[in-house]
Design a protein around this nucleic acid. Sequence first.
DNA 1: AATGAATGAGTCTTCATTCAT
DNA 2: TATGAATGAAGACTCATTCAT
Lengths: 201, 201, 201, 201
Amino acid sequence: MSTEAPQAKAPQRARGVQRVTELLDAGASLFVQKGYDATTMTEIAQCAGASIGSLYQFFPSKEALAEGLFGRYVERLSSRLEALIEGAPNLSPKRLADQLVDLMLEVPSDRDAAVALSSSIAGIVERRKPLRTATRRQISTILRAVNPKVPEKAAAEAAALIANVLKIVPILAKEEEDGVHALVAQARLMLTAYIERVVKR
Amino acid sequence: MSTEAPQAKAPQRARGVQRVTELLDAGASLFVQKGYDATTMTEIAQCAGASIGSLYQFFPSKEALAEGLFGRYVERLSSRLEALIEGAPNLSPKRLADQLVDLMLEVPSDRDAAVALSSSIAGIVERRKPLRTATRRQISTILRAVNPKVPEKAAAEAAALIANVLKIVPILAKEEEDGVHALVAQARLMLTAYIERVVKR
Amino acid sequence: MSTEAPQAKAPQRARGVQRVTELLDAGASLFVQKGYDATTMTEIAQCAGASIGSLYQFFPSKEALAEGLFGRYVERLSSRLEALIEGAPNLSPKRLADQLVDLMLEVPSDRDAAVALSSSIAGIVERRKPLRTATRRQISTILRAVNPKVPEKAAAEAAALIANVLKIVPILAKEEEDGVHALVAQARLMLTAYIERVVKR
Amino acid sequence: MSTEAPQAKAPQRARGVQRVTELLDAGASLFVQKGYDATTMTEIAQCAGASIGSLYQFFPSKEALAEGLFGRYVERLSSRLEALIEGAPNLSPKRLADQLVDLMLEVPSDRDAAVALSSSIAGIVERRKPLRTATRRQISTILRAVNPKVPEKAAAEAAALIANVLKIVPILAKEEEDGVHALVAQARLMLTAYIERVVKR
DNA sequence: AATGAATGAGTCTTCATTCAT
DNA sequence: TATGAATGAAGACTCATTCAT
């Protein structure tokens, strides 16, 4: 009740759709660079080549913009996971771990923004719980597609852990200047070892 | 160069030493509850039963307080890891994973504060790199104490990954209202499986 | 390098232009009355009938406002000196001295503000050096218009001295409550005597 | 009535006398460098190698310190002028101008501090009027010593002007990096020309 | 006497949001 | 619809001054 969700107004014309995209992109970029609190609405507007008034036309508040960003990220993530589900039955633990890790290495902007936001906006975690749940359910589904014998509860717990571990993948990737990605490789190893245990036999 | 380190002024009287502790405790508590940006210096002072002037007597800026907090956390963490090193040679992978996880479940206040800070203060990550390095070196040492045959590079990479995974342990623990800690148990499993691979034989 | 120049943001609407003028006027008036440090930004805004936010819309810092004030003063002074240059060739030393002194007795507000500022803001002297130089060059030009035989170097030195002496004219004027201006008259005398020597024959 | 004069407590012991001197020196130095408002009491204490408590032992307020500084300056200036009076009868205008200018080039610290203060402390000008008057009376006396026929009023006015012009001498001196002092030389010229007129015959 | 800690009113400045044109 | 100006509550930080040891 105390955590109402401010809604972004849907744009009516083609021009508006583009504006919204530009604004979200600007927001994502700046939130990642400076964090949610340190980024000002004026900056976002400027970065998107719009006026502050224009920004408020589409997003009635800073939090609404953040929500929009979060939504876009979850949507993108979700559709990718959905694609994974299709081919899951034939995946080895190693291939599955790899694909999950690869997935986290794509679309960096929105994902990093989502991370920045979730640690900064009180209430967004609460409000986004269903989305988080959806993501986990998808991972859980994948696990049970690989081996239908995995009990539902076990799959759910494993999915929750995997979802959390996946969040550190981008951090590991960023830590390594060169393209070596030795740490990411270790993460692949760890996930593989874990998934093997979970779906064994 | 662009990331100067604000320094806390050391107290010179017994009263001052106590104040510094109280202020750090208050800061840790509030940063965890509301995040770095949302916590005001006035609040921190009030929470510590001091005046805003007193707070600034010892911490010349909000960031200096954060640094102080970070430093105290790293110190505490470090001494615990040091203790682990002692008994490491006789540890099975499972025992080692358990002890590392247990370690993260203790001293929650400072650790959570450190987490809250690292995502909020630009530059603190840069400045704390050496400390992070120290922590990793300790974990690496432990791994090589368990099995001296592990190559140095492999141990270092594993340590980096483990350090990152350990950070999500408190998050998992908080997610579960009851005392069940099923997710934490999964994390133990995952770490055990990974450590086994790293130090195998 | 260490003396950055804070810049006033140019208004883009008619309303804004008026606001800037009102704010500068308010600043000038208050700086003169109470000095730079003792004048608060809130006071200036109030005095101009604006909100503190409006003040900062156009002047991003107290120093930027001071710079703006200084700039306006120098501009005004410069245009008056330019006018003097026109008629200079036919001026007797006494007339020239009189006109310079008269010039300092006009536009009191900005000039007094400029004086108040220059003694209070570290760096403004450095930053305004080129403007000071311009003023002196104008005075020097006038001297050489009166008598082209005056060597350039001599004219430059005399101009520098005269510029400094002119600064005390407003102080002298203020010292005398009544309209007598005996001290100002003495200053006219002194300047006349000096200019006679400089441009003699 | 509203401009009470805070008094510095006279030190009782030899050690105290030295302390007071050190504190005044520190104050003078800092006031000159950064201005009255920008200088903090803590800085002054530090600069003098004393604690803030110690500073307040001798000067009950910032203004009291400023007063002390002002007093010391006036005393020093006064004694020098007194010395000038002795030899005045035999002085040519040029010699007199030179000696006055030379006098301003000595004891720079206190004098510059006095200048910095007079433009910053509301009320100090009022309170110091008698001292200013005394200085002027001394200059006036010198003028009438040179030529007793100068009417008292004329001498008083001339003295007031001269006192003001002398204040810019240090500014001129500081402006010239090298030891040339061409501007100061011009000031000597100007004063000479003026004094000649005042005491002519 | 000496020192360092304590105090808190007051300052500059920021920024989400609203409004008038 | 678009834009720039307006608003003011709120926050970090300062510093003269007082106090306890």
